[in-house]
């Protein structure tokens, strides 16, 4: 499956390529995976390895940085460099790494608790700064590693171990958070559509700038079938909207429905009906995140759930600005350490 996308930079200008052709296995480390049997993380790991081998990224030029949680074990299973860091802080480590080593490709693996609860602050700032790191948020709407407490994406009223009579707080929408930070790349995919997930990973990897990908991931132990209402194979066509840049926003069996603007947001219209002409064409490159934000708010059951690249805009990264400042200042000013040590004025003691 190839997603329709905005014009892309040549792959070699974005990605450090390996000298020889690599396969999926070249990206797998020899460490035994230790997720629960049936966990959605296995599929994400497999698609990550597949996507990177499709792009043929040089493994030694890749660093996976993670925080804490089930998803954050991810780096151990990749035959790349990696750091399994501390809870919520992966974006900070990734930022320092990428800014001092622009030659590396830096990925952040995080979860809903790691990214949106303890690490919420860092997520906002890494996205608004547009540091060139790729962030994959595995959203399972539960705390798995600590055995079943509610997370910042758990639904209001959800019964969990730490909310025996239901939560009393409303969830965050990860895509809305990313768009509010004016992230330059925002996408969503899910664990049980390998083709779509692989393609989305490749798209994120080829973005120059901060990329944010929410991956709906099933936790079959503590929050089983959290997304099944719309991701099960037999309902996908009806309940998911696969977005493609430049294509009309159509969904449903035989693409018989579409999205149009209403007075209060988006509405579903009949693709064969009188309002068919009002169906929106998806523009991921639209600078203002307004329509993107409306898409992000589309939720089951009222609306189809959007999947794919919601937003991709090109703008200089933090590193681009920083590196060019250094270049310009080096050109404009002396940079002689001896002179710096002497300061503005000195005097001689005989």
């Amino acid at each position: 499956m190839v997603l329709q996308t905005p014009p892309l930079e040549p792959v070699e200008s974005i990605i450090p390529l390996a000298d020889e052709d690599l396969t999926r296995k070249d990206y797998a480390s020899d460490v035994d995976t230790r997720w629960c049997p049936g966990c959605g993380d296995y599929s994400i790991l497999a698609q990550m390895q597949r996507g990177l081998s499709n792009l043929n990224v040089a493994p030694e030029k890749m660093v996976f940085v993670s925080g804490i949680g089930c998803s954050s074990r991810f780096p151990y299973y990749m035959n790349t460099y990696g750091m399994h860091s501390i809870h919520g802080r992966a974006p900070t480590i990734a930022s320092g790494l990428k800014l001092s080593r622009p030659d590396l490709m830096v990925f952040v693996i995080t979860g809903d608790g790691d990214a949106l609860s303890i690490g919420g602050n860092h997520l906002l700032h890494v996205l608004r700064r547009n540091v060139d790191v790729k962030i994959f948020l595995f959203n399972n709407r539960i705390y798995g590693l600590t055995k079943g407490q509610y997370s910042p994406t758990s639904e209001l009223g959800k019964v969990t171990k730490s909310s025996p009579v239901g939560t009393t707080e409303r969830p965050l929408n990860p895509l809305s958070v990313a768009l509010a930070s004016e992230a330059t790349f925002v996408a969503r995919s899910f664990d049980t559509d390998p083709q779509h997930l692989t393609a989305t990973i490749e798209r994120a990897a080829r973005h120059h700038g901060a990329a944010f990908v929410e991956i709906l991931q099933n936790c079959n132990i503590f929050n089983d079938r959290a997304f099944a209402d719309y991701t099960d194979r037999n309902v996908r066509d009806e309940r998911l909207l696969y977005l493609e840049h430049g294509q009309p926003m159509l969904f449903g069996e035989n693409k018989n429905k579409g999205l149009a603007v209403s007075a209060t947001g988006l509405r579903v219209v009949d693709a064969g009906g009188p309002d068919a002409g009002l169906i929106l064409t998806h523009d991921a490159t639209r600078p203002a995140p307004d329509v993107h934000q409306l898409l992000a708010r589309c939720a089951y059951p009222e609306m189809p759930v959007p999947m794919g690249v919601i937003r991709q805009v090109t703008t200089p990264t933090y590193g681009d600005y920083l590196d060019s400042q250094i270049e310009v200042q080096k050109f404009k000013n002396r940079h002689d350490v001896t002179q710096l040590l002497r300061g503005r004025s000195t005097w001689q003691v005989e």
Binding site: P91, T92, G96, S100
Partner: peptide, 11 residues
């Protein structure tokens, strides 16, 4: 965190 990332990267 950024300083650790930089140190890890060899800066």
């Amino acid at each position: 965190g950024t300083a650790i990332g930089a140190a890890y990267g060899g800066a």
